[in-house]
Design a protein around this nucleic acid. Structure first.
Length: 579
DNA sequence: GCCGTTTTCGGCCCGACTGTTTTCAGTCG
């Protein structure tokens, strides 16, 4: 997608301008534009030229640069900038504690232009003597480079959240904290996380910090102050802990939850109203009178806004919606009534039907759909038509004995490379739900893959497309698809799209979900459970849905089974299945 | 470079910690 590429270019322009010592506000403008272009819920190519400047942070100049890029594949101003500084120099900025000012100094004074050179100079103590640099700084630079080499990438939400929870529990038990919460991008439930931000209140902040830096998990202490400390844990994640007074907790929580872009918008609003916001509260500018800050809601209330849920705080229109009283009532985990993508022992799952029913009931569900793989997917022990029908008979028998719970008859049928469906219609029509998905031929062209999906959605029996883009976070990119076309056909055919809640998929992702909703597409949130523990993934899926602004009414499996089946394709009148 | 219930010019978010400084710049979030 061009969005990501443009975003990268804008960020690189910002980096280059920063090292060159350009106007900081101009630099911020490029960074803001980068964020907004990347977070755009549709491809930048689909935005009409005249509407580009309606994107927040895009004015006349940047709209022109975007158009230039889309038309010619280049931005002349960017090409010129590239000749000013060597590309490798930019890598210096990724060293923690080394910023643009230092990079400029190193380049000007010592002609250092790459990480390797920097490492050599630092190791040979050739940096000392430069203005503001002595031994300690050299040491920090070497440490930073070592850390970079170990590779500190963003990690999946599903890996980081459990770690954060366990640190939180430990601090609750062993440190004198009154309140403690997760903040930062983790609280906003971004799909990948760079560091864990924690916020606490305490009468004895120094003691809290002592406990924190001595946690068993801690590999290295980066910063240790009375109200703020940062450490690296063995899982190669940075954890920041901030302690504030009880009276400031809400303001601090807002502040440390971010996003940065959201906070800047709030502060700009405050300034226009003669107010000031910091992590200690919201104040009247003229006499510094504190108007609130103990509760997070205080900040929004004083600004005249309703409370904005963390998942929306990305400066992607939530402030405008809040001003208009048009914030969505986001779907919650409690709204979920069932799971429509579940594998059993019959294919590549590990649980029996009975065990799945038991686990699903523990989640508070009233139904699940058994959706084992189809025959073409031999690696997953896909079912033949005969086995599929045998499975249905067995499920029917169990259903007869169940009270207040229902097993739906389904399949996760393979969409073959030629776009055909791996079961005949005669079999599909005997099921309650047909979940279709792609498992092979990922490398076909965008046109071919889109066509495959469209063909599948046009099949009258296919009710849901599972993990529509096929991406695996951190290991496999989404396959090439014309998502606008997918959403259009999904709407037209009444096919639902899945938000796959597995923390390594989260597919659709948040921006796709948001766009799908805008286009009127129905969605479901499913876990793709293979072992019963994985029903617990639902929370991740709901988080993604919330980040996509989805409400209960946008998600079909918030419905009880009878109503659900009426909404699921093929919308058979008086449709009945199990009893 | 963006943006407008003060403004099409002149503003642009705010504070903690570190390492280098004898009062502060740089970095980070």
């Amino acid at each position: 997608m061009k969005n990501r590429e443009l975003s990268r270019i804008f960020n690189e322009i910002a980096d280059r301008l920063e090292i060159m010592g350009d106007n900081p506000f101009r630099i911020r403008a490029y960074r803001r534009a980068a964020i907004n272009v990347e977070g755009l819920p549709k491809s930048i190519e689909d935005v009409p030229e005249k509407e580009l400047s309606q994107i927040p942070g895009i004015g006349r100049d940047l709209a022109g640069k975007i158009t230039e890029y889309l038309k010619t594949g280049k931005i002349r101003a960017y090409e010129e900038l590239k000749s000013e500084l060597p590309k490798e120099l930019l890598a210096l900025l990724s060293v923690p504690s080394l910023g643009p000012k230092t990079a400029q100094l190193l380049y000007k004074e010592l002609h250092i232009k790459s990480l390797d050179e920097l490492e050599r100079f630092a190791a040979e103590h050739k940096l000392s003597g430069l203005r503001g640099i002595k031994e300690k700084t050299e040491e920090n630079i070497l440490k930073g480079i070592a850390m970079l080499k170990r590779g500190k990438e963003r990690q999946p939400l599903g890996r980081v959240l459990p770690i954060a929870d366990s640190i939180l529990e430990h601090l609750k038990k062993s440190a004198p904290v009154k309140k403690i919460d997760i903040a930062g991008s983790l609280r906003r439930r971004k799909e990948t996380i760079k560091d864990i931000d924690l916020l606490a209140t305490s009468d004895r902040p120094n003691e809290v910090m002592e406990v924190f830096i001595q946690l068993q998990d801690v590999k290295e202490i980066l910063v240790h102050g009375p109200t703020k400390s940062s450490v690296i844990i063995y899982e190669d994640l940075q954890v920041d802990l901030r302690v504030v007074e009880k009276e400031s907790y809400g303001a601090a929580l807002t502040y440390f939850t971010g996003s940065k872009a959201h906070n800047i918008r709030l502060r700009e609003m405050a300034i226009r109203m003669g107010l000031k916001i910091n992590e200690y509260g919201i104040f009247r500018e003229k006499d510094n009178k504190k108007l609130g800050g103990e509760k997070e809601d205080d900040i929004y209330r004083v600004l005249g806004l309703p409370y904005i849920p963390p998942e929306l705080r990305e400066d992607q229109g939530e402030i405008e919606a809040a001003l208009k009283g048009a914030l969505p009532h986001l779907v919650t985990l409690k709204d979920m009534k069932g799971d429509l993508h579940v594998h059993s022992k019959w294919s590549d799952g590990s649980a029996t039907f009975e065990r799945l029913v038991e686990a699903a009931r523990e989640q508070g569900y009233s139904y699940i759909a058994i959706t084992d793989h189809s025959q073409g997917l031999a690696v997953a022990r896909g079912l033949t038509v005969e086995r599929l029908m045998e499975q249905k008979r067995e499920l029917q028998a169990i259903n007869k004995k169940l009270r207040g719970f229902r097993l739906l008859y389904g399949t996760e049928v393979d969409i073959r490379s030629d776009g055909s469906i791996d079961f005949p219609d005669s079999a599909l029509k005997k099921l309650d739900t047909v979940v279709a998905s792609i498992h092979s031929g990922f490398r076909q062209s965008r046109q071919q893959l889109t066509w495959r999906m469209v063909s599948a959605m046009k099949n009258p029996h296919v009710s849901i497309i599972a993990h529509p883009t096929g991406r695996l976070i951190g290991s496999r990119d989404a396959y090439e698809l014309d998502m606008e076309e997918i959403f259009r056909v999904a709407k037209e055919t009444g096919t639902a799209l899945e938000i796959n809640a597995s923390p390594f998929r989260l597919d659709l992702n948040d921006t796709h979900a948001k766009r799908a909703k805008e286009m009127g597409v129905a969605m479901v949130i499913s876990t793709d459970t293979h072992v019963t523990d994985q029903f617990g993934f639902m929370g991740y899926g709901v988080s993604i849905a919330r980040r996509g602004w989805l409400e209960k009414s946008d998600v079909l499996n918030t419905l009880e089974p009878d109503k659900l089946l009426k909404k699921l394709k093929p919308h058979k009148a008086g449709r009945q299945s199990s009893h």
